[in-house]
């Protein structure tokens, strides 16, 4: 049986790992390569790297980091952050990434999703959706959570799948950094309305939260950062717990 996946996320800035709380107040949590090797040894099913740097050297630095990661780990990984063209994607995949995630650029230019799916196949196109609950609904936010749109997350999710997205990385801004659990309601609503896998993100604080997002939220994968980086939850312990809770997991 296909297992649920546990995915540590590493935010990268200028080649270093960082993690923001509610997308702000960035704290340093180590070297990306060291963390990547450590997580793959611990039994992480996949890794996600989000590049949040904004310098002119960004692209070159990122390619180098991606290349070093690819040489050193034997599990799949996704790279995202500021990817806006087919050429950007070529460079990242060519450096050894398995998938790319696109967010703001895909919202502003939805045909990018279609172009990427045609060129590289849907399986390597992850569309990241940052969403926030306000006025009784979940809305899409852009630019790392800074810019609100009038688009509902559930509608955007359906659109991106229609355009060829192979997976959706759904981050609840309300939950992110709170450690109070994932946004199970919107995760479930989207998971049940589209055919592609959903990676839930934002809010992991305890092992029960992971169980809840798989059982109640119907997520296919769960992503977290600080609970792993600061060793509040160890992946082998988490996987053993999930297995005991009858969730299909790779041990």
């Amino acid at each position: 049986m296909l297992t649920k996946r546990i995915i540590p996320c590493l935010d990268i800035k200028d080649g270093r790992t960082v993690k923001g709380v509610n997308f702000e107040n960035i704290r340093d949590a180590g070297d990306p390569i060291v963390l990547a090797i450590e997580y793959s040894k611990q039994g992480a099913d996949e890794l996600v790297f989000l590049d949040i740097s904004a310098t002119n050297e960004k692209r070159k630095t990122l390619s180098e980091v991606v290349n070093r990661i690819a040489k050193n780990i034997n599990i799949p990984f996704t790279v995202g952050g500021g990817i806006s063209s087919v050429e950007d994607v070529y460079e990242i995949l060519n450096s050894g990434a398995d998938k790319v995630s696109v967010n703001t650029s895909a919202f502003k230019n939805p045909s990018l999703i279609n172009d990427l799916a045609k060129r590289y196949g849907s399986q390597c196109v992850v569309v990241a959706i940052d969403t926030k609950f306000e006025n009784d609904d979940w809305y899409v936010y852009l630019n790392g959570g800074k810019v609100k749109t009038e688009k509902k997350a559930a509608d955007w999710a359906k659109e991106v799948v229609g355009l060829g997205a192979g997976e959706i990385l759904l981050t609840s801004m309300n939950n992110d950094g709170t450690k109070n659990g994932f946004a199970n309601d919107i995760t479930r609503a989207i998971s049940e309305s589209v055919t592609v896998p959903i990676i839930a993100s934002g809010g992991a604080g305890t092992m029960e939260h992971f169980k809840d997002v798989f059982v109640t939220g119907k997520a296919d994968a769960a992503l977290a950062a600080s609970v792993f980086h600061f060793k509040e939850i160890e992946i082998p312990t988490l996987k053993k717990y999930l297995n005991e809770q009858k969730i299909t997991i790779r041990l």
Partner: peptide
């Protein structure tokens, strides 16, 4: 068939 999520992504036996 789309009874399951497609593509299949992840670890299987």
């Amino acid at each position: 068939s789309e009874e399951n999520k497609v593509p299949q992504i992840g670890w299987n036996t």
